[in-house]
Design a protein around this nucleic acid. Structure first.
Lengths: 165, 165
DNA sequence: CCGGATGAGTAAAGCACCTTGACCCACGTC
DNA sequence: GACGTGGGTCAAGGTGCTTTACTCATCCGG
């Protein structure tokens, strides 16, 4: 055996969950689905933060410090992310037109292709979601709607709320 | 200066965000608010995962391995969490009635008090949310509702979607 | 014109939190 | 009685971030 991997636990009393946990579960589930499809599309080497970085670098690139601010991390962390993406061919560091010590981090074609694919996947996911019975949520049924969103497509038990914090 | 801390970036074009990011932002924001209030209530030493552990240990306790399964982590990680909580007086390790090598991890009174406070805070938050204009969401306005949820109470710019993954 | 303030970039170390790996031991089963 | 299974724990590894600490280029007030 592989020791013990993080395996699902819970049941289907999703309706009784606190709204906050429901929200987290829905987010985690949707993000996982998105990531899975992204991996199927050949982007298994990119984490969500990389996609966010791509968006932060549109349309004309940005400096490392600016990227750091937009991502909400230190510039050192942003620098590491850029190193990583540069190594993989998703961004380039070019001399900054405004000079100084600055460098302009710009997206390569590969990154733009990724953005296009990711956008399509996101819209597809959203459409699937609104097509579900609970797409419409009247005043008191928001909870039910979110519960439906958090429910596994295959009827499987919901995964644990991972310390996504 | 404090170097640069993770400081907020973005603006108010919340409506244009992808649904998935909106969801993440809402979750992150609400969780942050919850944590803040919990800290104000004297529980600044507890992370969300601790609260989840408390819930997983209700009502009659559980073994470390069972807790690990419910939290979706390895039993070693669960063991560390229990060590931590035990040191702080929130749980006790008792001999397991079924014997064996098992130990029953049970909540102390302090943990039950925490659960009560946390529950009140969660319900308060939820009520505040449903009292907001966007509490009611008709079919096409789910996005607007979530955007409202993700909007900072004080009108401040939304924080970055932290790699909460 | 110069001297400090400002801000970009980088390097190194630290840390929080989880995993992988490797065990030991109690119990049920045949 | 050997065996397999499952609970518990020690130790090490690893990832992804922060903190600390610097260097260097430009801006600007006197």
């Amino acid at each position: 055996m592989h020791q013990e991997a993080p395996t699902p636990p819970a049941t289907a009393e999703l309706e009784k969950l606190e709204l906050l946990f429901l929200l987290g579960l829905a987010f985690q589930l949707l993000l996982g689905e998105f990531n899975g499809r992204l991996a199927d599309a050949g982007y298994g080497d990119l984490r969500p933060v990389h996609g966010l970085a791509f968006q932060a670098l549109r349309p004309a690139g940005a400096t490392g410090s600016e990227l750091a601010r937009r991502l909400g991390v230190t510039k050192q962390a942003a620098g590491q992310i850029v190193d990583d993406l540069e190594r993989r061919g998703y961004v380039r560091r070019e001399p900054h037109p405004a000079g100084g010590r600055r460098k302009l981090v710009v997206l390569t074609e590969a990154a733009h292709r990724h953005l296009a694919v990711a956008g399509d996947l996101l819209h597809g996911l959203e459409n699937e979601l609104t097509a579900r019975p609970a797409g419409r949520a009247d005043p008191g049924r928001r909870r039910a709607g979110l519960a439906a969103a958090a429910r596994e497509p295959g009827g499987a038990p919901p995964p644990p709320l991972r310390p996504v914090w």
